[in-house]
Design a protein around this nucleic acid. Structure first.
Length: 332
DNA sequence: AACCGCCTCAACCGCGGCATC
DNA sequence: CGATGCCGCGGTTGAGGCGGT
């Protein structure tokens, strides 16, 4: 016996959303905030199941979503994070706050996977033939040197990859109307959490390199911001005591931060979306959840090496591969 | 102009995790 | 402590667009 359907299939509308449905959903969420999806269809009168409403909101209507036209930097981030995390699209999306997991997943499946496959074929024609069927995009040299039982979703790291493909995207005709609606909402919302939060929580511990690094990085990456806050809280709670954030966590966090310090430029920071306090709180909650889940997975998944190890390899030994990629293959 | 095949991406499906009872 | 319900995630699907013939 499988799980019963999330909702009664009778009378439930499926398929593309109409502008009218979008507006009804947005209006409702404006008033009540996201969450409690179960009650959304009944309260709004929408003939959609709760999952459909949530999906429509998170993937399409939510404020701050950037659509289409992935920048080369974003592509590099996705490639890098996919190599680190595997197909954990939600985790990857938490580092690209303007992108949804669905968007990233689609982009990976439709663009990046193919490009990496081609790249690997160009780099090593002998091993490229069946590699993608198992999801393995790692360079042969990695497997030669590291006899690790890697999870099946690692890819070439190419954080400086420059892909000149221009992606044009077409979206539902309602998009502009909805964005105008949401722009009005965002304008009327309180200022984003970022500034005040960082000011309020300015660390007094200037000698704490970890905290400083985290603060720097947290200003850009919301997920890290939460870890930073957690770290600071723990420091405050356990003054002079044991740091509740594990060394492994910091190793992972800081190596990621180091990696991306050079990559995160001002334009990236400037392009971060403004969030309503509600949206920020919601995102914060999501990030907490994702981080906890990720930590749990990292702890439980013995087959995968620690992130810091992978990152070290990616940094030390494979960064140059992106340059090779550019030179080797005309398609890039 | 019509057909065909490929590509893209919004949306759906099913499962696992977690909270609550 | 098991049953139940809800939420979120990752994999998959299919409609529509687009280019080639």
């Amino acid at each position: 016996m499988g799980r019963p359907p999330c909702c009664d299939k009778v009378g439930i509308k499926k398929g593309p959303w109409t502008p009218e449905e979008d507006i009804i959903l947005v209006s409702y969420i404006q008033e009540h905030g996201p969450g409690n999806w179960r009650s959304v269809p009944t309260n709004t009168g929408l003939s959609r199941c709760s999952k459909s409403c949530r999906l429509r909101w998170t993937n399409y209507l939510r404020p701050g979503i950037k659509r289409g036209n992935f920048t080369p930097h974003e592509e590099g981030m996705i490639i890098h994070l996919q190599a680190l995390l595997g197909n954990k699209w939600a985790a990857i999306a938490s580092y690209l706050p303007q992108r949804t997991d669905n968007d990233i997943k689609n982009y990976w499946n439709t663009h990046l996977k193919k490009k990496l496959k081609k790249f690997q074929a160009a780099l090593d024609p002998h091993s490229a033939s069946d590699s993608t069927t198992s999801g393995q995009y790692l360079p042969k040299s990695f497997n030669d040197r590291r006899s690790l039982d890697m999870s099946s979703n690692n890819n070439n790291h190419a954080s400086s990859l420059r892909l000149n493909q221009s992606q044009s995207s077409t979206y539902a005709s309602s998009t502009e109307n909805i964005s105008r609606l949401l722009e009005g909402w965002m304008r009327s919302s309180p200022k984003p959490l970022k500034g005040s939060q960082d000011e309020d929580l300015q660390s007094n511990d200037d000698n704490n390199m970890e905290s400083t690094k985290l603060e720097k990085c947290a200003s850009v990456v919301p997920a890290l911001n939460n870890l930073h806050l957690q770290h600071k809280k723990n420091k405050d709670d356990h003054e002079g005591g044991v740091d509740m954030v594990s060394h492994e966590e910091f190793d992972s966090i800081l190596s990621f931060e180091n990696l991306n310090n050079a990559a995160w430029d001002k334009s990236t920071c400037d392009s971060m979306p403004e969030k309503s306090s509600e949206a920020a709180a919601d995102e914060s909650a999501h990030d907490d959840e994702r981080i906890n889940r990720q930590k749990s997975e990292n702890n439980n998944n013995n087959s995968a090496p620690p992130l810091s190890f992978l990152e070290k390899w990616l940094l030390d030994e494979n960064v140059g591969h992106a340059e090779e990629m550019m030179e080797l293959s005309p398609m890039f």
